[in-house]
Design a protein around this nucleic acid. Structure first.
Lengths: 353, 353
DNA sequence: CTGAAAGCGCTTACAG
DNA sequence: CTGAAAGCGCTTACAG
């Protein structure tokens, strides 16, 4: 017969142990699902735990043990849909695993970025950190992380390097498929808006585009290619330029949605019907892609899935940190599937041109 | 002359005390900026701290003391620009104060929502929680929070209630100003797309609209008012309906940007020029508002500032929890200034109609 | 102004 | 399968 000894405040492991008539070590074993506890004992303890609403305190577990049950997410651009998706996936996986996600927004060009990271890791002692672009490439961040000996996973880094696990999608393949989609609709003159040279995705997406064009024996017209900066305005400008020529493409594929929306704006201001006069495709499936008319054909990045996997890897490495079964995730590079989202901004080339 | 006693691993308060030749209590005082330490002693300790790169461990501080230096942010809609802004402001203020932000994305209609909150508060023991709509109104969340005795602040709740601090903007005033702006441009027939009845902002914004109309002796035509659900599609539908009537308004004001973008799409599909044939105004200044052509006239909510203030209130209440000077924030309701963002989607009523 | 002692609530390492 | 002891790194309450 158990009885409540203290009703107020939150119960500690000692309270539970006393009520259950076992040692705190046994309660600890049960809470951590460790083997080596009699089924009856385990069930009995579990019952008491439920009854007393006992929840281990993170700070105590963290101080005594080797894990903090905290995962850090470092990001830069706050408005990006990309980060939203990543955070969503990370937070859900964390909850499932009894972990918590601590977010930190930093400026990519902050002079004290290294210290900020250092501050975060040494105070919090997270079991792992997740980096999103462009932080994946920031030497100060990477160095601070290495020095703190905090495990970390990169999401969509520029390139995979040995010893740093990463999760990504296949940008080249996605761009290739999108281009093939346009070609299959009947387009032969296809324009392309590139991203800025200093971002990894830019080159990869252009590569996919030109690869598909070449595969179908179509020329990549220089006049139809423009280099933007991933922002709306550059898409608008690029499209204005491309569409002002004597010969126009019947479709333009932009390296991201924001620029694709710029193309759409350009087309509308020029009185071109989309997709009849001009098909437009983007990349990202940002929220805005479904908030325009016609809705944008685009590529959906597996942001949430990438984040889930990143969390997974970090938790696993924390768990097995000093186990016999060393799971080495340090050279794991995962590639997740994307999704072609065909909407109304692409169609067969019109008859009007 | 100090010398490094242990170079490896991270130094603890004991290490610092030994090197500095003081007690750990003195180091603790210095780290917490407590008064009652000789300036010389303080400076000396500070020097050793810097030299050894000492950083107090959060878990130890949390376990021993009354504060966790953790603030929780509970949100529902992950894609919302609103949440992004709030998080941005919260994370920055937290860093300044040496706090960290733990985020948790929950489903508004999850059956175990109360338990989720309970789990979070009892494991993490955050010094405070921030809630965003529609969680501000969720009885399970509020009850779980109250039971856990975690202080919390509501951002833009439906209504202010005694004992629960809140931060908001003045929706009525903002809608009034936007309407006045349209009227000042010369519009007399102005349509309005309402938000869903179950969201507080809906009624407030409509109130501001009708108040301004009345102030200028203009009628609110029932045929020009439509009730949407804050989503793109409902704006599109509402506009289609309103614009299909014999008499059309020369301007439509939507209760949020997503619906305003729906109006824009409708206008474009009907061949109406914006703003010449139809002026369109939104509410939120979402990212998409600047990603369309013409860019949307809208209202910018002070999301980041609201979050900063919320964090501020929580930190203050945590600090003074058992001080003599009790700052009671429990009945504080702050109202922050918004901003009218006039862009190209509004203009003088055209001559064509 | 400064410090010695106790304790926060867990896990670790060890013993049986 | 179970437990007693020690200790994680700080703050609190107290003493001087």
């Amino acid at each position: 017969m158990e009885m409540n000894i203290k009703a107020s405040a939150s119960p500690t492991i000692t309270d539970v142990a006393r009520v259950a008539g076992v040692s705190i070590k046994t309660v600890s074993r049960v809470m951590n699902k460790e083997p080596g506890v009699h089924t009856e004992t385990r069930e009995h303890v579990l019952r008491v735990v439920t009854q007393m609403k006992y929840r281990p305190k993170l700070s105590a577990r963290s101080l005594a043990g080797a894990r903090s049950f905290l995962i850090g997410l470092l990001y830069y651009d706050p408005s990006a849909a990309f980060v939203s998706g990543v955070q969503q996936g990370a937070t859900l996986r964390c909850r499932e695993a009894g972990y918590h996600l601590v977010v930190e927004s930093v400026k990519d060009d902050a002079p004290d970025l290294g210290q900020q990271v250092d501050q975060m890791t040494s105070a919090l002692r997270p079991d792992g950190m997740i980096l999103t672009p462009p932080l994946c490439e920031n030497p100060h961040v990477l160095q601070a992380l290495r020095e703190s000996e905090t495990p970390f996973v990169l999401i969509s880094p520029e390139r995979d390097s040995d010893g740093i696990p990463s999760v990504r999608m296949d940008d080249v393949l996605a761009a290739e498929q999108m281009t093939a989609h346009l070609i299959s609709l009947g387009h032969k003159k296809i324009g392309f808006i590139k991203g800025p040279a200093d971002q990894a995705a830019s080159a990869l997406r252009y590569k996919g585009f030109s690869r598909a064009m070449k595969a179908h024996a179509l020329p990549v017209e220089k006049d139809f290619v423009y280099t933007g900066d991933f922002k709306f305005h550059s898409g608008l400008e690029g499209a204005n330029k491309i569409l002002s020529r004597r010969t126009r493409p019947t479709a333009i594929f932009a390296s991201n949605d924001d620029m694709a929306l710029g193309i759409l704006a350009s087309a509308q201001s020029l009185g071109l019907a989309v997709p009849d006069d001009l098909s437009i495709a983007g990349f990202d499936d940002s929220p805005a892609a479904s908030l325009v008319w016609p809705q944008l054909t685009t590529i959906r990045q597996p942001t949430a899935a990438m984040a889930r996997l990143a969390v997974e890897m970090l938790i696993t490495s924390a768990k097995t940190a000093d186990d016999e079964v060393q799971v080495d995730v340090s050279s794991t590079h995962m590639v997740l599937a994307h999704e072609l989202v065909i909407r109304l901004s692409t169609g067969k080339p019109g008859k009007r041109l």
